[in-house]
Design a protein around this nucleic acid. Structure first.
Lengths: 129, 129
DNA sequence: CCATGTGTATTAGAGTACTAATACACTAGA
DNA sequence: TCTAGTGTATTAGTACTCTAATACACATGG
C-alpha cells in the first residue's frame, strides 16, 4: 500500500510543503519505515497534476533534513533515524514549536494537561521504538 | 515594565511575525493581561528602527485574531480571552500544530511522554486561570 | 481649538517564493 | 547496449510577501 498524497489547492500552503508534511507524518506514524521507498517524483507529479520539479524540491529538502536518502537510479529511501546532538540540544530545538503550541492553546482556552494528553495520545501510535 | 521587543534580522522570519509571536507569548505567559496596552506603533517602530506600518500590520493581525482590541486614540488593548467554538472544535483547531510537533519529536528521537512533559511544564507558568 | 497622540489606507518598489519547461546525468535490467 | 526508469540543474516567469513613504481620520487633553 503505497503512500498516497493529497493536496488542498485552496489551503495556501505550497504544494512541496504539503508533500513534505505528509511524508514526515507517514514516517513518524510508522506507515513508512526505514528502507521503504517513496513513490517516484514523476509518479507523484502525475498523480497530483504538478511539475516533477515541485516534488523533487520536497524530496530534496527531506533529504537535507535527514528524513530520506537518495539512491541513484532507484529513488528516495526512508533513512535510519538517528538522533543528532545532545539530549539538551534536541529538546532546545523543539522549544520554539512548543512555545507556539502553548500560545495557541492559551488562546483556545485549552489547559496544559489537556493539551499534553492530546499530544501524548497522538504520539503513542508512533511509539514503536 | 513595558513589553520590550527584540527582533533577529538574521532569522528570516518577517518582522511583523516576530512581533506577533512576542505579543502572543507575553499574553499567554501572563506578562500582559487583559486591559493592558501594547506599546504604541510608533514607539515600537522607533525602538526597532522600522516603519510604523510594519508594526501596525502585526497589531492589526493580532486584532483580527482576537488577541487585542483597538481603542481609538489610545492604542491596542489586550482583549478578554474567550473560547470560541465547542471544545471539540477547539481541540481540532490545535491538531495540525500538534501533528507537526509529533513529527518533529520523532525525528529528534524524543519520546511522547518526554515531550508532553516539556509542553506541560512550559504551559504551567501560563496556567493562571 | 489645536497640538499631540493614537492606528491605518494607499501606493510603490524590491525581493523572494513558487511552479513550470527543458534538458541532462545516472542506474537497473533485459 | 539500450530502453526505461531514477532525481535534478538551469532558466524563467508569475505571483506574492514584506517593508517603506506619505497622508489621513480620529481621540485626548490642555
Amino acid at each position: 500500500m503505497a503512500l498516497r498524497f493529497h493536496i488542498l489547492p485552496t489551503s495556501g500552503v505550497p504544494i512541496y510543503r504539503q508533500v513534505m508534511e505528509q511524508v514526515r507524518a507517514a514516517v513518524a506514524g510508522g506507515h513508512l519505515r526505514e528502507g521503504d521507498f517513496l513513490p517516484s517524483v514523476r509518479e507523484v507529479a502525475a498523480e497530483l497534476a504538478v511539475n516533477p520539479m515541485t516534488i523533487s524540491k520536497a524530496y530534496s529538502l527531506l533529504e537535507r533534513d535527514g528524513v530520506v536518502q537518495m539512491v541513484r537510479g532507484q529513488g528516495m529511501r526512508v533513512a535510519a533515524r538517528r538522533a543528532v546532538g545532545t539530549l539538551r540540544q534536541r529538546r532546545e530545538a523543539l522549544r520554539p514549536l512548543l512555545a507556539q503550541v502553548a500560545a495557541a492553546a492559551y488562546q483556545l482556552s485549552l489547559s496544559g494537561p489537556e493539551v499534553a494528553q492530546m499530544l501524548e495520545a497522538l504520539m503513542k501510535e508512533t511509539d514503536r521504538e
